[in-house]
Write a protein that binds this DNA or RNA. Structure first.
Lengths: 212, 212
DNA sequence: ACAACTTCTCTACGCTGTAGACTTTACCTG
DNA sequence: CAGGTAAAGTCTACAGCGTAGAGAAGTTGT
């Protein structure tokens, strides 16, 4: 059921995921969905969970930096392949206290904490590392998707056209950067940011012994 | 009109901002709102703009690091005082191509680019710095708000209660960190992350001459 | 005073999530 | 196999939503 919901979200957008539409997709009465999800909100949480479960984390790995870097790239790709789910990813937790969120959404948090603690960080530092890391990661994904042109029309022209609308006096920098904006290597930018962040964090907090 | 809308969002949440509700707040017919906003979406953009306009940026300042750090703290406080607007802040641009967004939303982008370029960065590097910076900033704000307990009930107890629900076998780290999670100094964490990021960026990209 | 134009109001339509009563199906027990 | 119990699915209905379109009221220019 959740996979059908995800299919609708991916192909038709978040708003298209209505109870009636999902019921039709499954060939069932819309009301029957309430046996599996108490709410439409719960349904959205389910989709959210389903996507997050595609993310593989191996907390046993001792090389925390490599692991975090890989996870970052994986999550980025996940977001790019389900762009319509991203609003859910960043917005749903805002309205649910931490402890009451679906387990599938809390699992990555637990696993990354575990990874960091096993790698030698004191629990409290692990939390700090996690926050800086996940904060940057989510921010990057949002940023990249915001610049991503979903329009089926030719990209660059439309982008330039959009920017052309801006008053030149007020937005000279942005207009001048139009060609650079057009080719955005998200993976490289993410990797570079992660590098800066991880080495900075490692230098600042007590570095883990890293000897098994 | 927008300020009335913002008032509703702040006090009653995003969903409470309906055309009928806003009309009632203004003592006007709901349909009269369409003279000022083409859409409900445009209305949300307006609220978004209104909040972002509270953010002051001084592109003439030569000390880009101090300036970016101040802006980060300002935006954080802004987000904390309008938490219900944050979903708008991060979500709305996802459905609008960059060039077609309201000017008030693009203005911070332009101003920060201007700040960086005036501080000596080549235009292209300025864009990279901006992306890493804004990405981290947005990510931090999301993170902090996600941990923020809006519940009027006593914080710590409720948080622990929520966490207590988690199966101990599966979430040992998270449960153990409950007391630490409870007191989260968002400003300090943001400042520390910004420090790491800015110094890393300055070291990596051609450092600005910084001599006026 | 009349006309043109803007602004506001009213009604109505199709859509939404979901409560509550009802019917059908599945399964387990004697 | 028969009968009862629980689960799953269906139907109808309601209040609320955004907003199209026609009309009323008010304002301004000549």
């Amino acid at each position: 059921m959740l996979s059908a919901a995800l299919r609708i979200v991916d192909t038709e957008g978040l708003d298209a995921l209505t109870m009636r539409r999902l019921g039709q997709e499954l060939g069932r009465d819309p009301m029957s969905l309430y046996r599996y999800a108490a709410n439409r909100a719960a349904l959205l949480d389910g989709v959210n969970e389903l996507v997050l479960n595609e993310l593989a984390i191996f907390p046993e790995d001792r090389d925390w930096q490599a692991q975090l870097r890989r996870i970052a790239h994986d999550l980025r790709l996940l977001a790019l392949s389900h762009p319509n789910v991203v609003p859910l990813l960043v917005t749903r937790p805002l309205s649910t206290p931490l402890g009451l969120r679906p387990l599938g959404i809390l699992r990555p948090l637990e696993q990354i904490l575990s990874l960091l603690i096993d790698a030698g960080f004191p629990a409290e530092d692990a939390l700090h590392v996690y926050r800086a890391y996940y904060g940057f990661l989510y921010g990057h994904i949002l940023n990249e998707l915001q610049e991503f042109i979903v329009d089926p029309e030719e990209n660059e022209a439309l982008l330039r056209l959009g920017l052309h609308r801006l008053p030149p006096k007020e937005f000279p920098r942005l207009r001048a950067l139009a060609p650079v904006l057009a080719d955005y290597d998200g993976a490289a930018e993410l990797d570079q940011g992660i590098s800066i962040l991880l080495s900075g964090l490692a230098a600042q907090l007590s570095p883990p012994p890293a000897t098994p």
